[in-house]
Computed example of a mutant assay.
Amino acid sequence: MTVIAPPSRPPALSPSRASDFLQCPLLFRLRTVDRLPEPASAAATRGTLVHSVLERLYDAPAGERTPAAAQELLPVEWEKLQEADPRVKELFAPGGDAESEGVENWLDGAGRLVSTYFTLEDPNRLEPAERELKVETQLPDGPLLRGIVDRLDVKPDDGALRVVDYKTGRSPSPRFEGKVLFQLRFYGLVLWRERGVVPKMLQLVYLGDGQVLRAEPTPEQLEGAERKVRWVWSEIERAARAGKWEARPSKLCDWCAHRALCPAFGGTPPQIPEGAVELRLGIA
């Protein structure tokens, strides 16, 4: 019998896990409850690397945050990433996600994304208040919300907050903007509940095509985000208590690491380990 270790932190809902459930409840279950391992993804790993470079860039004083300095950080952060997660070395092995690309071309792609950043913002004119900020808040009669904000800027004169998130993909078409803004409104909601201040600006920086998406949230919009979060959580509770995690096929299935286990493709999900739902979701 599989023994489930108690979580190091209380169960919580993050924007990425909420998005997983909205995309496919079975995917949410396999990632959050079963915690099945997934092979390294070339795109996700490149995103992690670029985020690390942009975080470390602000360790340098203003005036020294140059494109050349950022490029010099790439191999340093790449070495750290390989030490922290040995799976990324499998990317370039036979059958790996980046086998055909090769490590040098893959790193060049990361370098181009970093270069694009300098066309969108001048880091020498910014002094972030926080980087990779862990935020959380407990909703009354609801779930604990948790996430990591890439960058939080605080305006010196009036304390206005700007939430910044870096994306290494391309910007969405207008009809999908609401979906991507959900993540930032989630963070805005958490900051509002914890600090009592509605962020002035939510900003998505798309390095894939050099676009910036900005939105000024209102209390009504953040309350709407809370209602959506509560609805998602109620659906998670319903699925957990019924033991029914629906597979929801879509075009995204082509990139799913668990497709072989999906009933929609002739697979059979594993049995949920005893006690996993309560330990990992806090749902009895």
Rank of each mutant, 00 (worst) to 15 (best):
P15Y: 00
A129C: 06
P270N: 11
T45W: 00
K244V: 15
P10T: 02
W233K: 04
W106M: 07
G243W: 00
L22P: 02
S100T: 03
L26M: 15
E72L: 11
E104S: 12
G159T: 01
T45E: 00
W231A: 12
C262L: 05
P143F: 02
P156Q: 08
D34R: 10
L184G: 10
W233D: 10
P143M: 08
R241V: 04
Y187F: 03
P156M: 05
L113P: 02
V50A: 15
V103N: 05
I4Y: 00
L144H: 06
A18K: 09
G147I: 04
E177W: 11
T137P: 02
E226I: 04
A69G: 03
D165H: 12
L184M: 12
G169A: 12
E79M: 10
W192T: 15
R65S: 07
W192S: 14
E235Q: 14
C253P: 03
A110P: 06
R146V: 11
D157Q: 14
P7I: 00
A257S: 14
G266R: 05
A84E: 14
L74F: 02
I272V: 15
K134A: 12
D141L: 11
A93P: 02
H51Y: 11
L57F: 10
E101P: 00
A5M: 13
L202E: 03
E132R: 11
L26P: 06
G224L: 07
P217H: 03
V180T: 14
E246W: 00
W245E: 05
W192H: 13
G102Y: 00
W78D: 05
E83A: 14
T119Q: 11
S100I: 02
L54N: 07
R31C: 13
P174F: 06
L120S: 09
G208S: 06
Q211S: 07
R227H: 06
E235D: 09
D209E: 05
T168I: 02
V229C: 06
M201R: 14
P143S: 12
K89R: 15
L145C: 14
A257F: 00
Y117A: 13
L91A: 10
A242D: 12
E278C: 09
G109Q: 05
C24S: 12
D165A: 15
R146M: 13
G147D: 06
W192C: 08
I236K: 01
N105I: 04
D209G: 07
L145I: 05
R151A: 14
V76W: 01
L152H: 11
P75A: 11
A42N: 01
L22K: 13
L191R: 07
L181C: 09
G169P: 01
D153F: 04
R112G: 05
V135C: 09
R162P: 07
P94R: 12
T168N: 10
T48M: 12
V149H: 07
P269S: 11
T119G: 08
R170Y: 05
E130Y: 14
V197E: 09
L81S: 08
V149S: 13
V33M: 11
K134R: 14
D97H: 10
C24P: 09
R65E: 01
V277Q: 07
A43C: 04
R259I: 09
R248L: 10
A160P: 02
G159L: 10
T66G: 04
Y206D: 06
S19C: 12
G96I: 03
R65W: 03
L252D: 07
E90G: 15
K179L: 12
L120H: 08
E278I: 03
V232N: 06
I236R: 01
D165F: 01
I236A: 04
F21A: 14
